[in-house]
Design a protein around this nucleic acid. Structure first.
Length: 113
DNA sequence: GGGTTGACGTGCC
DNA sequence: GGGCACGCCAACC
């Protein structure tokens, strides 16, 4: 039995992001009831990458839809390319159709009434 | 326990 | 929209 650290909780949410959808670090943080720990979400992405986990970190951007973490993908254009291949429109490190493809775990993973 | 870190967010200019 | 200062907090040393 493995303890669920904050990082693992983040990875669990990110892994549920559907193809072609994106969300923000803050949204994940809010979903985990720690809205002020949004920075940790980004750190968790870095940790997941280091741990070689299969986490779609490219689907997580900041609240402005900007590819703030692109420089952590090894190749600068990798994140942008991955998102483009999923139907997203990127212009100058920013997702143009961000709101259209925004996936909020608070809504999507909420227990439907 | 204390200082540093950080792929963020909010407020303000 | 861009830039800056500050806050926030889990993980790390």
């Amino acid at each position: 039995m493995k303890e669920h650290s904050f990082f693992e909780s983040v990875w669990e949410v990110v892994a549920k992001i559907p193809f072609g959808k994106v969300t923000s670090y803050g949204a994940i943080a809010r979903y985990l009831s720690t809205p002020k720990a949004a920075r940790m979400v980004g750190w968790a992405m870095n940790a997941s990458h280091a741990a070689k986990l299969d986490i779609p970190a490219h689907r997580v951007v900041n609240r402005l839809g900007m590819l703030s973490g692109k420089q952590h993908f090894g190749q600068i254009d990798l994140m942008e390319d991955l998102l483009k291949s999923e139907g997203l429109i990127i212009k100058e490190d920013k997702i143009v159709n961000f709101e259209e493809n925004y996936w909020d775990p608070l809504i999507e993973l909420r227990v439907k009434s």
